[in-house]
Nucleic acid binder design. Structure first.
Lengths: 346, 346
DNA sequence: TAATAAAATGATAACGTTATCAAAATCAAG
DNA sequence: CTTGATTTTGATAACGTTATCATTTTATTA
């Protein structure tokens, strides 16, 4: 019986009208109701064990207080902290999260988009599974994209400044005396390719007038699973070392790659950072507990999540017009144990 | 206009009754409708751009196809894979996930429980934030708990056999010749304390007639964040080593602790596994990419998630009665680089 | 072909809330 | 104390689907 009491029952119980009871109970701005009646309603509701039927409310309003999060794979260390950031922010506003994963499968992603529409989520935060993801279905839904790809003009986006972050790392390595810097990139499915990284590398080297060679650029296959990527990157690193490279430092485009390089270095007895400096990118937990700890260009995922959530809610609750926003957050270089000054080989 | 077309509009468009149209469109078992009319309805629906209004359907049925997942903290490496397991399973059945985190805060947890009821989720998978978590509100909701605590009699539970897993590790270390095994435990908020681990250790040692001392048992404070726990465990490990311990092996009750021990060992130049074997528990990613890789007692979180989801859906869709189930899954010892035969000190 | 059973379709009443507008109560000012 | 303005409350109609039951159509059998 307890979960069956309706607003009408409460009205009967306290001798007020259904409308008044609703005004007290529906959690809207607390306007237009006298303190005395409010109390009457509240106690009556409590007495008969009234529980608000959110289903009915959502239906009547034709909208929910849910926001969808669409990502590829929750086990990718990038996402949990992001979602936590979102979660913490939206709790303040009374929204809840519908979690949709697509396993990098565009078809599932598309189904998820459709589901968002049908279930009338209030908005969505989306990390597109690939640069050409088709967002047509979402036309009228408030959406924030987590990307800095140029493909999504007209959409609100939030992302870290990966390019700037990469330069940050390269500059620091330069400062530390490194003149032969290797680049490890992973052709992630998310980015439109890693050619821009190569370009930045070239530009950097020519600006500083230091040695550059394609041989110093290693492209690792990134697979869906972090672990597979790790293992493929280790193979790449072993191959790289076998060529007796002159590199004194490695910049890797993500922490998994960097940790793979670190792992192989440990294996081969190469001292990090004395003989080789390694800098990664992302700031995942594993890099904080590796040996040595990993210097990395951190993307503040919690902050991104929080900002995305804030933006989204503003957009949802905005009167009518909305100016498309593109937020790019700076990365931060976190110096830990895997990087240091270059040392003369004796 | 597109998202405004209703079932009635479709009925008008194709000249059939509202009821018939609903029968075709509501995704139920495909019964009681002729192929010819089905096609008519479908094409009419497509033509006027009908989108099913899940809000209305949920309301009418007074139930949703959502299941809630209540956990403490998504950034705890234990959970993402678990949720992935759940996700993959429930997709088969057409359910979606509402994600609720409580940051170890019982009050938030309680609010989340309330929300589950009010929003009429079909069921919930809950990892209780503490052993005395109050589940009264959830009386009539199908629920599966992720715990093996004895506190929750009468509830369906699924968890790994941590005790058995611990014995697995100890036995293996014994086989490898270790006779002085240290125990690192973390007083997690989730478990009712770690005293049972100590007991198992004692029993193990007395059964095998090997050395046991309280000095070989290190209790580390576990905090909410993995990283803090890591750093506290490192301190504990340093202190432990400073006492010039006779231990040739360490069993740690979770991977974070084990990785902390490993980190300090690397730092001090203690060769793992030659001079010291380390075995952890859980099977988190960081242990697969550490140097050396971490031997661990794996809890198959993806499997737990998948089983929990399956059980829950069975329970949700069960006719009336339901036999309470308690599933305990065996752990698996994964031997990687951090464990090996004991070596004579020279 | 008629009689009966079975399958397919139609008509309509909910589900419980919120929004709208109308009515009543209260307040403010002269 | 009256008038008008303002605040508070009441009556009632949606929202779009599904469930129930009634009706029609089709299939089956004698």
């Amino acid at each position: 019986m307890s979960s069956k009491a309706t607003i009408v029952d409460v009205a009967k119980e306290c001798g007020l009208s259904q409308a008044t009871v609703a005004r007290v109970l529906n959690g809207q701005k607390e306007i237009q109701v006298k303190e005395k009646t409010r109390k009457k309603v509240l106690s009556a509701a409590k007495k008969i064990g009234y529980e608000r039927n959110i289903l009915a409310a959502n239906f009547r309003r034709q909208k929910t207080k849910s926001i969808a999060i669409s990502i590829a794979d929750l086990t990718n260390p990038f996402f949990p902290e992001l979602i936590k950031g979102i979660q913490n922010k939206i709790r303040e506003y009374g929204y809840s999260i519908v979690q949709l994963n697509n396993e990098w499968n565009p078809k599932i992603e598309q189904d998820n988009f459709k589901y968002m529409i049908q279930s009338r989520v209030a908005g969505a935060i989306i990390s597109p599974s690939h640069p050409k993801a088709d967002l047509k279905v979402l036309e009228r839904l408030p959406v924030i994209l987590l990307t800095n790809s140029d493909e999504f003009s007209g959409y609100d986006t939030i992302a870290n400044d990966s390019k700037g972050g990469m330069v940050l790392a390269l500059e620091r390595l330069f400062e530390l005396g490194h003149r032969n810097i290797a680049l490890f990139t992973g052709g992630s499915m998310m980015s439109a390719g890693s050619s821009w990284r190569l370009q930045i590398m070239k530009d950097f080297c020519s600006n500083r007038n230091i040695f550059f060679s394609e041989d110093l650029c290693v492209k690792c296959d990134m697979s869906v699973s972090s672990l597979d990527s790790f293992s493929q990157a280790r193979t790449a690193m072993r191959k790289f070392l076998s060529k007796d490279t002159p590199a004194t430092a490695i910049f890797a485009s993500n922490d998994i790659l960097a940790l793979a390089a670190l792992h192989v270095a440990n294996e081969k007895g190469i001292k990090v950072p004395d003989e080789l400096s390694i800098i990664g990118m992302d700031g995942i937990l594993s890099g904080e507990i590796s040996y040595p700890t990993l210097t990395t260009v951190e993307k503040n995922r919690s902050q991104i999540g929080s900002l995305a959530a804030k933006s989204l809610i503003e957009k949802i609750e905005a009167p009518v017009e909305w100016q498309t926003k593109k937020i790019i957050l700076p990365c931060k270089l976190i110096e830990r144990g895997s990087s240091g000054p270059v040392r003369e080989k004796k």
